[in-house]
Computed example of a mutant assay.
Amino acid sequence: MNEADALELLRSAIWTIIVGCGPAVAAAMIVGLVVALFQALTQVQESTLTFVPKIVAVFVVLAVGGPFMGAQIYAFAEHVYARIEKGF
């Protein structure tokens, strides 16, 4: 394995992480912005109000997008194992 192979494997791993966790992080960010806007408009400063909707949104996205995320991780694992089998 040379430096180019290692960098390609690292780039592929980082991209898999971004694509795999992106939907859940995006859902949490959007729900967080909506709750923050709601709190700013109504001046309700309840600290638990920020956590519960985010948790629910992330669980829903994980339930719906779980097969997609799992497929991405599985494809990356197959790619790595194929490279190991070929000897890089």
Rank of each mutant, 00 (worst) to 15 (best):
V25R: 01
V61C: 02
A26Q: 09
I55W: 09
E8H: 13
I73M: 10
M69G: 12
A13T: 12
L9Q: 06
L49T: 08
F51T: 12
E8Q: 14
I18T: 11
T48P: 03
F59V: 15
W15M: 12
V56F: 08
E85S: 10
T16Y: 03
A82R: 14
T48I: 07
A24R: 00
A57C: 07
A4G: 07
Y81R: 10
S12V: 10
Q39E: 07
G22Y: 03
S47F: 09
V31S: 03
I30E: 08
K86A: 13
E78Y: 13
V56P: 05
L62A: 02
V31G: 01
T16I: 07
A57R: 00
I73Y: 11
A63D: 10
V19K: 04
Y81H: 11
Q43G: 04
Y81G: 04
M1K: 03
Y74M: 15
V44R: 00
T42D: 05
I55L: 15
V80C: 02
L7D: 14
Q39I: 02
K54A: 12
A26I: 15
F68I: 11
A82F: 05
I17Y: 06
F59T: 14
L9E: 05
A63W: 08
V80M: 00
A36V: 00
M1D: 06
R83Q: 13
A75W: 07
D5V: 15
C21R: 04
C21L: 15
A57L: 05
A27M: 10
V34W: 07
Q43T: 14
V64L: 08
L49D: 06
V31L: 04
E3C: 04
L41Q: 09
V52L: 14
G32P: 01
A71L: 04
G20P: 08
F68G: 02
F88M: 07
A24Q: 07
F38S: 13
I84R: 01
M69A: 15
R83L: 09
A63K: 07
M29E: 01
T16H: 02
A57T: 12
H79F: 13
Q43R: 06
E85A: 08
P23A: 06
A63T: 11
K54P: 13
Q39P: 03
A57I: 07
Y81F: 15
P53H: 02
V31H: 00
A63E: 06
L62W: 01
L49E: 11
L7I: 14
F51A: 06
L62R: 00
A28V: 06
V58H: 01
F38Q: 06
G22H: 05
A13E: 03
A6E: 13
N2M: 02
N2F: 02
H79D: 12
L7A: 13
A77D: 13
V58N: 04
E46R: 03
F38P: 03
E85I: 08
V56Y: 04
Y81K: 08
Q39K: 06
A24E: 02
V19M: 06
F76M: 12
L10I: 14
S47C: 09
E8I: 11
A24W: 00
G66S: 05
F76V: 07
Q72K: 12
L62K: 01
A75H: 11
G65P: 01
M29P: 14
L10C: 13
A26C: 13
A24S: 09
T48W: 09
A24C: 08
G32H: 00
A36Q: 05
P23D: 07
